[in-house]
Structures are given as structure tokens and as C-alpha cells.
Computed example of a mutant assay.
Amino acid sequence: MNEPDELDLPVEGGALRVLRFGRGPRIALAAHGITGSGMSFRAMARQLPDEWSLFAPDLRGRGGSADTPGPYGLDRHAQDLCHLAQELGDGRPVALTGHSMGAYVALLAAVRRAALFDRLLLVDGGLPLPVPPGADLDALLGTTLGPALARLGRTFETDAAYVDFFRAHPALGPHWNADIEAYVRYDVTGPRGARRSKVREEAVRRDGRDLLTSADLFAAGLTGPAVPALLLHAPLGLLGQEPPMLPKSLVERWTGGPGSPAAEPVGGTNHYTILLGTAAATVAERFVALGA
């Protein structure tokens, strides 16, 4: 498989690094998770028909967009997606998807400017997350993100040591493949002997707080989406075991009813392998079919 082209496309206040997979005329736009990058869509993009091009931006504070100035926040990312969709679509609606936090960003973008999009695929994200009243949001983020947050403050002697850190992750190590390794290696930067993640912790914490405090916005977006919408969800969570990121009760609450997105579980997957494993073929298939 050819590696993606790396583009720097203008947005308000700077530019975003955007990975382009494929050379076809059909345009897809994909938003990644809270500590991820556009490289998380490598496996899915390979499964798309030849007539597709998938554009996966590194959101502000991540990947090649790590130095793109803030402010951060889900609405800012949604604004960036709308800008890219308008430019890439050249007058035609584009297909939209997002994984994890990116699903929430994609949902907000579709609400903001529905005419720019012809479908919305949510991958293990996009549903309002229940937060106990008075909860310490920073503590809740630390509990939820766990190893993903821990790596942001660490340095590593070599790229191989960084890869080994991910190989030890219970949701990734048992399912290791070339797409996961490409995703990990794309994320590493810094001088020899002090290699680190490209992700900025301040961006993660700001966006994480938005995830936990914007339930009303997400709920409104899920009530009668303006474009065909589908949620694909994993039965296992961020550590490769139960509970899932989106519990069954939450999925049933927000999907499947009149005016709500449909939902489909993707068996045998966790929060990461739903996109970075063999299930990427299912994600691509549902994405293409959604606009039929």
C-alpha cells in the first residue's frame, strides 16, 4: 500500500497537516481520536474503492498540526472540518466520519453546516457521556484515558522503545499489525534520546473537558440528523476489555428510534481495533453503503 500524501491546508489562524489516502474523485473526510492522528484511518482507507480519496487531518495539537495555534475545543475542530469540507468538496457534499473524539467533532460539524456533507459515520463515539454531578473532570479524564494520557509526559530513548510502550497496551499488543505500527511511528518526534509523542497535553485536556460537558450539544445533534447517519460501536473498551466505550444502555438510549441514527455492533473489536484491525473492512463497507 502506498503511504499517504502529506498536505498542509489552510484553516483559520494557520494550517492543518492532512493525510490524503487514495486518488479518486469521491471525497471523504475523517476526524481522529483525542490522542490520535490522521494515520488512524490508514487501514480503513485501504479498504475503500478506488474511486475514493480519504482526507484525514491531524487536528490542532496533534501530529503534523501540533504547532497549529489554538484555541482548542471541539467546536474549533468542527469549524476546521467544515472549512476543509468546503474546500475539498469544491461545491459537492463530502462523506464524513470520525472515531472516538473525532465522532463528536464530526457530529458537531454536520450540525453546524449539514449542506457540506452527504453522510455521517460515527465510530465508537458521538453519544453523550454520562458524568456524575460535581465530578472532578480532570480526575475523570485521567481515569478514562489512562495510558493514553500517561505517555504524553514521557520521553523514550528510541523509536523502538516508543513502539514497545504501545505493544504493551492491552488493547493493542495482542492485535499488533502494520497499521498499528505505522500509526505509532507517525506520532513520535523529538531529539535522539528524548523521543516523545507529538500530541500536546493541553489540547487533550481542553478537548476532554468539552467531551464531558457538552452532552446537550451532542444530544441535539443526534435528534433527527440532517444527513444519513450510522453508529458502529465496539463491544470492548479502551483497555481491550469490558466495559465498552459506549455501554449498551447508552447506545439504546440514543440510536435506533425515529429520527435517530441506526447502530451496529462490530463483533470482536475494542475501541482501537474497530478502526486499526481487520474490522476496518467493515467500517469502510458501511461508510460507502451509507450514502447509497
Rank of each mutant, 00 (worst) to 15 (best):
E6D: 07
E6G: 09
D8W: 11
P10S: 09
L16T: 04
R17N: 11
R20F: 03
P25G: 05
R26M: 15
A28M: 13
A31C: 11
A31W: 14
H32G: 14
G38V: 04
G38D: 01
A43Q: 02
M44E: 05
A45N: 11
R46V: 13
Q47R: 14
W52Q: 01
S53R: 02
D58Y: 04
L59A: 12
R60K: 05
R62T: 13
P69E: 07
A78F: 05
A78C: 04
L84R: 02
L88P: 00
D90T: 01
G91I: 05
G91A: 00
A95I: 01
G102R: 05
Y104C: 12
A106S: 09
L108A: 09
R112H: 11
A114L: 08
A115D: 11
F117G: 10
R119L: 13
L120N: 10
G125Y: 08
P128I: 10
V131S: 09
A135H: 14
L140V: 14
G142H: 07
G142Y: 09
L145N: 10
P147Q: 11
A148I: 14
R151H: 15
G153A: 14
R154K: 15
A160I: 13
H169E: 15
H169A: 05
A171F: 07
N177L: 02
R185D: 15
G190S: 14
R196V: 15
S197P: 15
V204T: 11
V204W: 09
D210Y: 07
D210G: 04
L211A: 11
L212F: 02
S214Q: 12
A219L: 11
G221K: 09
T223G: 10
G224C: 11
P225Y: 10
V227S: 08
P228F: 10
P228K: 06
A234I: 04
L238E: 01
L239M: 07
G240N: 01
E242W: 02
E242Q: 01
P243F: 04
L246M: 06
P247Q: 02
K248L: 07
S249F: 07
W254I: 03
G256C: 06
H271K: 00
Y272D: 03
T273S: 00
L276T: 02
A284Y: 07
F287H: 06
A289F: 09
